[in-house]
Design a protein around this nucleic acid. Structure first.
Length: 656
DNA sequence: TTAGGGTTAG
């Protein structure tokens, strides 16, 4: 994790609220009521040609008026008299079918324009192709496409875009090759569609080269697609380069780059880009605000998140945005706000419910999470893969072994969800914490999917808690065989050795780490005070108030010792002894951040800390006692869960 | 005259 630059100021992000109440301008198209165009009239001895013209005109009028029922009746009359209207009229009718989701009527139009030897133009077949794609009837689209005598760039692009959207990535790329072989040149529409289908970095590079060669990199759609796919591949610098080269830009491109950083856990850069966007004169829309909320969520910036909330209100009841807001409050440890949002949401989907369930579970309210899961089921929402993960997580962090086993066994039967590695991981974690290491091992052997490094690392963590050296070494070897450069495993194993004073083994492991170029990630804690973010790293002394903070921390430790605090040296990771040991513990980053919070925040305000590593047992005891001594709420978010310290106790129930 | 870009839960 990249440590956030210290004292980052986010206070200038949002301007005063401005709600635009005027509706967007709508260009009204005058219905072309009596347009006949290239209508093909055929003689019919029983009907005069003026009557035939009336039939076509009536059909045309209904199509342009978007009057689907009457247009379909008129279509029957056209069919009966072997009449055809202009292609554009049919295109209007097909658009109307798409808008109404009228599959049956759309197929009827398809049948009509191919009836009695009539040969529709490529343009019209393309419109039908698009209709099938929009109806998600890809097989029908493919059959029609295969029947086409002439396929132009739009025909190919429609099919390629359909494959990309359906994540039929190989097929999308194969169709691009077929298109080129057919002598049809891809255009900006084609490239902006096919980029999403890149499954490998080398393919992406090749496509990017083609785009530059034919001069299409300037197209704003192609650029945003490039930014998006580079971001998805984690190539954020490449995405930023493409973004910065743009002369004109629009809001969607800003959203692409901001979303790219937000989704790659670089909330800091996402917020910087958002500030740039505001300075460039753009107004944030739902997509922008969703990404900004995600950035706040990843950085645990509650106060900034609250500012964004005010702006979210003008997009009231936007489901995606509300879900993001809900998650922000959950991840910032403010469950009351999250619950208020959740209660007020009129429309909730499986993501809303899952977010709240996971939010309760991660914040230590396992029973509330499980109750909510029951309410969700009762309201008719079907749980998915992630919901069940949240439920198992809730069981895991409350030590509810039997409940978890029930949910784990029933997920396939009740909801047709196959347990994935993550579900197994939750179960292994749960069994491991409960000391059932043999059962955890058995579950690994019974897994329907291959255990990966994370699976074995989970078991390794349990071995550390229960001091099972033999199994720990076995699990560690498994981890390192799957992920030989995993510094975390070396550290976990080294912690196990350190706890039993096997300092020679500790040194051996550390040498392996040094030789392999692996470094332990330094512990870092962040706190938001007065719209500024302050970062503290273990032993770091660069903060301007460093002397006062250390002095205050020492005084607090003395006061806590008088109340019975005994530093827990089990968590010292170095070969130190006596007083030195305590000193190493005393300056863990979260302690520095908490003390700074005490010194700077108004009396009574909750101290909220985010940290990059799991909290250690000593800091956990320290925080509980301090919360009581100072009569303050302290919330610490680590990479897995949250600890709410109040009146000498923690919401995790000392089980984490 | 048909085809293309950005947002939410682990």
């Amino acid at each position: 994790m990249k440590p956030l630059s210290r004292f980052k100021c986010y206070s200038i992000i949002l301007p005063a609220i401005s709600v635009h109440l005027s509706p967007p301008s709508i260009s009204l198209q005058h219905p072309r009521l009596y347009y006949v165009g290239a209508t093909e009239l055929r003689t019919n001895p029983r009907v005069s040609s003026s009557n035939l013209l009336d039939i076509v005109n009536a059909f045309t009028a209904y199509c342009y008026q978007r009057d689907l029922p009457n247009a379909m009746k008129a279509l029957d009359s056209m069919q009966k008299h072997r009449l055809w209207a202009d292609s554009i009229t049919y295109a209007e009718l097909i658009k109307c079918c798409i808008a109404h989701g009228a599959v049956k009527q759309g197929k009827r139009v398809h049948q009509h324009v191919f009836s009695n030897g009539y040969e529709p133009k490529t343009f019209l077949i393309n419109t039908l192709l698009n209709m099938y794609v929009k109806f998600n009837l890809l097989d029908e689209a493919q059959i029609l496409f295969d029947q086409m005598v002439e396929r132009n760039v739009v025909s190919w692009t429609t099919m390629i875009a359909a494959c990309s959207n359906a994540e039929l990535n190989s097929k999308a790329l194969e169709m691009l090759i077929m298109m080129l072989r057919d002598g049809v040149r891809p255009n900006m529409y084609t490239y902006s569609s096919v980029l999403r289908a890149c499954e490998g970095f080398s393919i992406l590079k090749q496509l990017h080269c083609c785009i530059i060669k034919v001069g299409l990199e300037l197209d704003v759609f192609v650029r945003s697609a490039l930014i998006d796919i580079y971001s998805k591949w984690g190539e954020l610098q490449a995405a930023l380069n493409i973004f910065d080269e743009m002369v004109t830009s629009d809001l969607v491109v800003w959203n692409s780059i901001i979303g790219g950083f937000a989704q790659n856990s670089d909330g800091d850069e996402a917020l910087n880009l958002f500030i740039r966007m505001k300075r460039s004169g753009f107004w944030a829309d739902q997509s922008t605000l969703t990404s900004v909320l995600r950035a706040c969520t990843s950085l645990a910036l509650l106060e900034l998140g609250r500012q964004v909330h005010v702006h979210v209100m003008k997009f009231d009841q936007d489901l995606v945005l509300n879900n993001a807001l809900l998650d922000m409050y959950c991840k910032c440890g403010s469950l009351k706000d999250a619950n208020d949002i959740f209660t007020r949401m009129i429309v909730k989907d499986v993501i809303s419910w899952s977010t709240m369930i996971i939010g309760f579970a991660q914040n230590g309210y396992s029973l509330k999470a499980l109750n909510l899961f029951n309410t969700m089921k009762a309201s008719g929402i079907k749980p998915n893969y992630i919901t069940i993960l949240g439920v198992l997580f809730a069981c895991s962090h409350a030590g509810l072994v039997e409940d978890a086993q029930y949910y784990f066994k029933s997920m396939k039967v009740l909801y047709s969800i196959d347990p994935g590695r993550e579900h197994y991981g939750c179960m292994i974690d749960l069994l491991g914490r409960a000391g059932k290491l043999e059962e955890a091992m058995k579950l690994i052997h019974d897994m329907k999917c291959e255990p990966d490094a994370v699976t074995w690392r989970t078991l390794l963590g349990a071995c550390r808690v229960h001091r099972n050296m033999d199994l720990a070494e076995y699990a560690a070897k498994k981890v390192l065989s799957l992920d030989p450069h995993d510094a975390g495993t070396y550290i976990l194993l080294s912690n196990i050795y350190a706890n039993t004073q096997r300092w020679a083994d500790v040194e051996k492991l550390r040498k392996s780490m040094r030789d392999g170029g692996m470094k332990k990630e330094p512990g870092c804690s962040w706190i938001e005070v007065n719209k500024q973010v302050h970062a503290f790293i273990l032993g770091d002394k660069s903060h301007p108030q460093v002397n006062a903070i250390y002095q205050e921390l020492n005084q607090i430790i003395w006061r806590l010792k008088e109340e019975g605090y005994v530093p827990d040296t089990n968590f010292v990771l170095q070969d130190l002894e006596g007083e030195q040991m305590e000193t190493s513990l005393a300056f863990h980053s979260e302690k520095l951040a908490i003390v700074y919070g005490l010194m700077s925040l108004p009396k009574g305000k909750t101290i909220r800390i985010r940290k990059n590593l799991r909290i250690c047992g000593d800091c956990h005891v320290f925080s509980k006692l301090l919360a009581k001594l100072e009569n303050r709420s302290i919330v610490i978010r680590d990479p897995i869960r949250y600890h709410h310290f109040e009146d000498g106790a923690c919401s995790c129930g000392d089980y984490w």
